[in-house]
Amino acid sequence: MAIGKRDRDRLGTGTPQGSRGAHFRPVGSADACGRAGEPTLGGAPVRRGGRRPLKRAVIVAVAVLAMCGAGGAVAWFGVQDNVLNTFTRGEIKPSIEETFDGSSTVKQNVFVKNEGTAPAYMRATVSIYWEDKDGNQLWESPVENTDYEIKWGVISEDGNPRWIEGKDGYYYWSVPVGANEQTGNLIDKATQPGTIGDKRLVVDISTQALQANLSASEGFDKVWSASSGLAVGVDGVLVRK
Rank of each mutant, 00 (worst) to 15 (best):
residue 239 V to R: 11
residue 229 G to F: 06
residue 172 Y to T: 08
residue 60 V to Y: 03
residue 40 T to Y: 02
residue 14 G to P: 00
residue 2 A to H: 09
residue 46 V to S: 01
residue 157 E to D: 15
residue 93 K to R: 11
residue 24 F to E: 07
residue 145 N to P: 07
residue 154 V to Y: 01
residue 63 A to I: 08
residue 87 F to Q: 10
residue 69 G to Y: 04
residue 185 N to S: 13
residue 190 A to H: 07
residue 152 W to N: 06
residue 241 K to H: 09
residue 17 Q to S: 09
residue 8 R to Y: 10
residue 224 W to G: 07
residue 128 I to Y: 03
residue 183 T to N: 08
residue 159 G to C: 09
residue 35 R to E: 13
residue 168 D to I: 01
residue 113 K to T: 14
residue 163 W to I: 02
residue 84 L to Y: 14
residue 10 R to C: 01
residue 147 D to H: 15
residue 227 S to Q: 13
residue 139 W to F: 09
residue 211 Q to W: 01
residue 37 G to E: 08
residue 204 D to Y: 12
residue 123 R to M: 08
residue 140 E to I: 04
residue 53 P to R: 01
residue 107 K to F: 10
residue 173 W to I: 02
residue 171 Y to Q: 06
residue 31 D to C: 10
residue 158 D to Q: 13
residue 133 K to D: 15
residue 10 R to K: 05
residue 136 N to H: 12
residue 216 A to C: 01
residue 3 I to D: 13
residue 172 Y to D: 07
residue 98 E to H: 15
residue 17 Q to C: 00
residue 210 L to W: 08
residue 141 S to D: 07
residue 231 A to C: 07
residue 96 I to H: 04
residue 28 G to I: 00
residue 186 L to A: 06
residue 239 V to G: 05
residue 116 G to F: 06
residue 117 T to H: 08
residue 112 V to E: 10
residue 126 V to E: 11
residue 125 T to G: 05
residue 63 A to G: 14
residue 105 T to P: 03
residue 68 C to P: 00
residue 222 K to A: 14
residue 143 V to Y: 04
residue 158 D to E: 15
residue 142 P to Y: 02
residue 232 V to I: 07
residue 229 G to W: 08
residue 87 F to D: 11
residue 235 D to P: 03
residue 126 V to A: 13
residue 208 Q to V: 07
residue 198 D to H: 11
residue 14 G to E: 03
